[in-house]
């Protein structure tokens, strides 16, 4: 039995612990936000947080989730405390990185977006004021074939500013 917290909700899963965490999240937990682009840790599309730290779920075994707090793109907005106070729309809340990627054109096909978002959000938690070079460094393990990264970097800069203002 694998016992862990998934986006704030307790889970008890009776699955083979040698399955990939990515497959367990997608197929057993129904969370298809984390994507598979390579299965070998090269593209970053499957990035999740384990205890708040980015991990590639394609290189993580289900058993390694045991006892951990796991966050996926689906739970990212709730992990950002400010949302409770600021959310006034009928839409589900968004993390500032999600908002910025959408507004600033950082999303094209959208397949790398969940992984990119998790990595960027972790960066901004650690470093509220990164410059473009630091942003490029942070997302360098996340491959995107559509954007050329320019607008992704713009978006993350924008999100950083939003988050600084709200602090």
């Amino acid at each position: 039995m694998i016992v862990f917290t998934l986006n704030g909700i307790g889970q008890r899963l009776d699955v083979d612990p040698t399955l990939r965490a990515l497959d367990v999240l997608r197929e057993h937990c129904g969370l298809t936000g984390p994507k598979e682009g390579c299965g070998t840790g090269e593209c970053g599309a499957c990035a999740i947080w384990m205890d708040g730290v980015t991990r590639l779920s394609c290189l993580t075994l289900a058993g390694q989730l045991h006892g951990r707090a796991v966050t996926t793109i689906e739970g990212l907005a709730d992990s950002w405390d400010e949302n409770e106070a600021t959310d006034t729309t009928d839409q589900p809340p968004l993390h500032p990185v999600q908002t910025a990627l959408a507004e600033r054109g950082g999303v094209q096909c959208g397949y790398c977006t969940p992984g990119m978002t998790m990595v960027a959000a972790e960066l901004l938690r650690r470093e509220p004021n990164p410059d473009r070079a630091a942003i490029r460094e942070a997302v360098s393990g996340n491959l995107c074939r559509c954007t050329g990264y320019h607008k992704i970097v713009d978006s993350i800069e924008d999100a950083a500013e939003t988050m600084r203002k709200k602090r």
Binding site: R26, E27, T32, G33, P34, K35, E36, T72, I73, E74, A77, Q91, P92, L94, Q98, T99, L101, A102, E103, G105, V107, C109, G110, Y111, T113, P114, T117
Partner: peptide, 21 residues
Amino acid sequence: SRRFDALDKARGTEQFATDIY
């Protein structure tokens, strides 16, 4: 303007063919 598809993709809720089981 923001693309029509951007929010769902940023949320991770857009269903690609791969996401169908």
